[in-house]
């Protein structure tokens, strides 16, 4: 086995895994706080890819050609608008169903997923869309024939993802908002009795999840350049797999699960077969559900009395 192929697959896996981790955060936080799988989350990510393209087009229209500046503005705008999507979806589709059966919001989520896909398809067209390359260039390590390379965009993906995860971890662990999120997650009724506006906290969690997916959407769009209205499906299910692998409900679990899934998938593609990488990922999901249903860092669910 050539070391450089292994190293290259690890680099690719880390990049892919950071993306999965960012999206998985939205699944795991929402599950943690209201116990539902937000199946529309993948499509929120898809919307953010379109918003990225629109933002870049608008900035180019204004004649802004500094790549770092354009990327920062695009990130900020996309995170904000995607956050508004997340907030609105919770308000419209989930909050009215709070207190009903567990199945109702799940079906509502599938409904929102279809609505988003069709709305984007109608308004933006069914054909794949693209953005111009803003950043090109690679870093290479090794000899002329045996080398590991990482594009600037890949470096950007890893750096921005880890920074976002670190910032979010700090918010949840050390700020008053983070404590209120954890309190609402652990015991929503008691949190309200202590004076926490739990509806506001749940909204905030949806906004955070959507904003994290938006970071992923911007980074992936900058990397691949093309996307369509259906990209949310497979990526969403993969990120969901990552969340389950790490232990759904656990924030560090989602990040770890995302990175591990990315690494596994890249190694499988590099050394076994590219066509079956999705099969491999989902087989992994099945195995996790059979042998460790609470995931790597999750705690077994205890029925609250």
């Amino acid at each position: 086995m050539d070391w450089h192929i292994l190293a290259q697959q690890l680099v690719n896996g880390l990049t892919l895994g950071s993306i999965y981790g960012l999206i998985a955060i939205g699944y795991t936080m929402v599950y943690g706080i209201i116990g539902m799988i937000n199946f529309a989350h993948g499509d929120v990510y898809m919307v953010s890819a379109y918003l990225t393209a629109i933002a870049i087009a608008v900035l180019t229209g204004f004649g802004i050609d500094s790549a770092p500046f354009a990327i920062v503005i695009t990130l900020a705008l996309t995170m904000f608008i995607t956050g508004v999507y997340g907030w609105s979806i919770e308000r419209v589709a989930y909050r009215p169903l709070r207190g009903s059966t567990r199945l109702a919001p799940l079906i509502s989520a599938i409904g929102i997923s279809l609505v988003l896909q069709n709305y984007v398809q109608l308004s933006q067209g069914a054909k794949p869309q693209g953005v111009p390359t803003l950043v090109s260039g690679t870093v290479r390590l090794g000899t002329e024939t045996n080398f590991v390379q990482m594009t600037y965009i890949q470096i950007l993906i890893v750096v921005v993802s880890f920074a976002a995860m670190a910032a979010l971890t700090w918010i949840i662990r050390s700020t008053s908002l983070g404590r209120q999120c954890r309190a609402t997650q652990q015991d929503r009724k008691m949190a309200a009795i202590l004076g926490i506006d739990t509806d506001r906290i749940i909204s905030t969690v949806f906004v955070i999840g959507a904003a994290m997916a938006a970071i992923a959407g911007v980074l992936v769009t900058l990397n691949y350049g093309s996307f369509d209205f259906f990209i949310g499906f497979v990526t969403g299910i993969k990120a969901f797999t990552a969340a389950v692998l790490g232990g759904i409900g656990s924030l560090p679990g989602a990040m770890l699960g995302g990175i591990l899934l990315g690494l596994f998938e890249s190694l499988f593609s590099g050394f076994v077969n590219t066509d079956y990488k999705d099969v491999f990922s989902f087989a992994l999901l099945v195995l996790v559900l059979i042998f460790r249903p609470s995931g790597l860092l999750g705690r077994p669910e205890v029925e609250k009395v």
Partner: peptide, 13 residues
Amino acid sequence: ALVPEGRHIFPAM
């Protein structure tokens, strides 16, 4: 302020 039945402290904090 309420001290509820079953205490309802936040166990993971």
